[in-house]
Amino acid sequence: MSDAPSEAPPDVPDDLRYASSHEWARLEDGVVTVGVTDFAQQALGDVVFVELPELDSQVQSGVEAGVVESVKAASDIYSPVSGTVVAVNETLEDAPESVNEDPYGDGWFFKVEPDDPEELDELLDADGYTETCESEDGDH
């Protein structure tokens, strides 16, 4: 089975940075919050389990830091930046549907204190990420 491109175009907020593997990153007060994008949650379908990195663990940019299991498939979550995990969203344990309902808000995954905040500059901006999504939609 293959899915047709979905109805509503995915939401790509201008104030975030993006990894081509469909995570978003928001820098606030020296800490980077990480989640998956609206495009990703639409493609995944209903999310049912989320496995997060451990608090105080080290994550590496582009290396898997967790797993999101949806009705459709299991997918690795990559950290967009390297650093130390300073918070994880424990509410996803009981409410994994937050990832679908509010991917840029309540559906956040973890927070990283980056080793090098300038690493964020290497990520895509909203326009660059939108292009990535459009080219993936065309692959169907």
């Binding site: 089975m1 899915d3 047709a4 979905s6 109805e7 379908g45 209903d46 009705v71 549907e97 679908n100």
Partner: peptide, 21 residues
């Protein structure tokens, strides 16, 4: 009804209408 359509057995069929759960 807002179906997300899928190609199945030669037909375009609704996979879900938002949330299969």
């Amino acid at each position: 009804a807002g179906a997300r359509l899928t190609h199945f057995a030669g037909y375009s069929m609704p996979l879900h209408y938002g949330s299969q759960l």
